[in-house]
Write a protein that binds this DNA or RNA. Sequence first.
DNA 1: CAAAAAGATGTTATCAAAAACCTGTGAATA
DNA 2: TATTCACAGGTTTTTGATAACATCTTTTTG
Lengths: 143, 143
Amino acid sequence: MLSKTCEYAIRAMLFVAQKSKSGTKVGVKQIAKAIDSPEPFIAKILQDLGKKGLVLSAKGPTGGFYLDKSGLEKSLADVVNAIDGDRLFTDCGLGLKSCSAKMPCPVHHEFVKIRKDIKGMLQKAKLGDYNTALELGTKFLKR
Amino acid sequence: MLSKTCEYAIRAMLFVAQKSKSGTKVGVKQIAKAIDSPEPFIAKILQDLGKKGLVLSAKGPTGGFYLDKSGLEKSLADVVNAIDGDRLFTDCGLGLKSCSAKMPCPVHHEFVKIRKDIKGMLQKAKLGDYNTALELGTKFLKR
DNA sequence: CAAAAAGATGTTATCAAAAACCTGTGAATA
DNA sequence: TATTCACAGGTTTTTGATAACATCTTTTTG
């Protein structure tokens, strides 16, 4: 469904979001540990997300990644779009190169509906929405 | 969403279903051409599906793959399950190894609903359901 | 029997995703 | 201002999925 990269990205962003609520910046090492991901890999991903304006970063001691108010309002759909593009929402479910309402694969119409649901779900979910649950330990980012 | 293998499998099965309606058996070569897939690859997939009882085959001249009445009643979910297992319906949307109602990732509950929809859709879609549309050329298996 | 077609098995090639590494550069603080 | 911390950026390696090919066996029809 989502690429591995994208999965890591979302988990990392949710962790950063959680920490940003209290104004803390977090380093790559800490993030990697929190979401159980390879450190150099998550560094790359965050760098990429930074370039695309989805996460802020500060160099030097006490530096790290963080989100501001508007960053916390970004949705999971924004993250997915930054990493995977709109592949998930446009690619044919049966792998056809040109599959559209005009030239549909057998399951095209059914897939359109499903994808719409997924998109809606991802758009509704904001990065800041999960802080409480994460702190309470009722939702998890690793294992 | 589905593996490439699974996509080919579904397309191949839909083609076989279409031909089986009129009692025709189809060879690997013909199938590969019809769904625009590598011939040795689709051969392997069909061999596999045959072993799992989803498609019938006959050796020798005039042989090939075909479906009987009960085969045409099988659903896309059956094909997906034979190839990809229940990966699609059980794996965590964010890549966590153990993600369940008890230890959910942040989007677990949302994903459960989506997956249920997908499953329902695949179960409702029978292999024989698309014959007319395929013959009329309003739905397609390649390009 | 000969030809045709699937069954079975194994090897190799290609490609993109994932992962790891290494050096550069800017910022903070003592 | 020097040191150190941490992100930035580029390069390389590894891995796994996909794809392609080859060979041989078995079965069935004509």
